[in-house]
Amino acid sequence: MDVTGEEGSRGRAGYRRSTGSPRGEAKRRELLERVVDDLAVNGLVDFSLRRAARSAGTTHKVLLYHFDGVDDLLRQAVFELRGRRIGNALAAGGVPAGGRTLADRVRAVWPTLWEEELGLRRVLDQAIGLAMYDPGRYSDLAREASRQYLPFLQSLCPPEWPDERKLEISQMILATLRGFLLERLTTGDEAGVDAGLRGLLRVLELEELADR
């Protein structure tokens, strides 16, 4: 996978002069949304500053005014796409009134992760692949994923749990669901993943039963 920028992989921070200006921030958001929409359709393969400029209807120099190079633009675009995924998951498994269990909430969230728009799922999988392939350049794509997902997963935990316990259980859920997504993507073993998910849900049910 080749993700490059014609002006250098790290960009030139001196170009980014829009920070702090309401008008500049609005323009940055507009450009970012256009790039995000392109990524959701076409994925990360051959992503470059010039391709991003074409999708945003501007020039690469304008993008360098608002972003610190192609890596910064990619990081922010992936962050936005991941936010869409979390928003979908919140709608399905957010903490409602009525005493639904943690297992119920995770059960409701899982379909939103797998059945979401193919382009969105593909880009986020490719982003993690980049972090594994070139951690020196793309490790932030993986670290930021955890920083985004964990607060959401902690919100699914019983509110009376201490923060340390919420973090422990959320880390377990995150790692396990990531594994299920990878397994289903690479092997197509739906039955095996479904069996693993049932096992995870039983573990979560037992975790809550321990409080009773």
Rank of each mutant, 00 (worst) to 15 (best):
D134Q: 10
L201N: 02
V109L: 08
L206G: 03
E205K: 01
F47S: 04
S18G: 11
E80V: 15
S139H: 09
E116N: 03
A103R: 08
G20P: 06
A127Y: 04
A77Q: 03
E208Y: 04
G99C: 01
K61G: 11
Q126D: 14
A91H: 07
T4V: 13
S155N: 13
P135Q: 07
A52L: 03
Q126T: 10
G11F: 07
D134V: 08
R12G: 10
L73N: 10
L90I: 08
A53N: 05
A26V: 07
A13F: 01
G43H: 02
E116P: 00
G136I: 07
L81G: 10
R147L: 15
R147Q: 15
G8W: 02
S55L: 02
L32W: 04
E115V: 02
R100K: 12
R121F: 01
D140V: 12
R137A: 14
R122C: 06
L120M: 09
R75C: 02
D72T: 04
Y149D: 12
W110I: 07
G93Q: 08
Y133D: 15
S9V: 15
A191P: 01
V123L: 03
Q76D: 05
L200G: 06
R105F: 03
S170T: 08
E164V: 13
G99Y: 00
A108F: 03
R51Y: 05
P135T: 08
I173W: 02
G93L: 08
L150N: 08
A91Q: 13
T4Q: 12
R122L: 14
R107H: 12
D104F: 04
E183V: 12
A210Q: 13
L102C: 04
A108S: 13
D140F: 00
R212F: 05
V106K: 09
R198T: 07
L49A: 14
R147G: 01
R34N: 11
V35R: 10
I169S: 02
A53P: 13
E205D: 13
G188V: 05
A13R: 15
P111W: 04
K27V: 12
E190L: 09
V78F: 09
I86L: 15
R147M: 12
E205C: 00
D125W: 01
F47W: 00
L167D: 11
G87K: 11
R137C: 00
L81E: 01
R10H: 10
L90R: 14
R23L: 13
V62S: 08
E7A: 15
D125T: 09
K166N: 09
Q76Y: 00
R50I: 09
G98C: 07
A142V: 02
S48K: 05
L74Y: 05
V95A: 12
R184G: 14
E160R: 14
E207S: 14
R107A: 15
I169E: 06
A108H: 03
R34K: 15
V106Y: 06
T101M: 00
E117I: 03
L32T: 05
L39G: 13
R100I: 05
E116F: 01
A191M: 05
E208C: 12
L153W: 05
W161M: 09
R82C: 00
D68K: 12
P22E: 13
M172H: 11
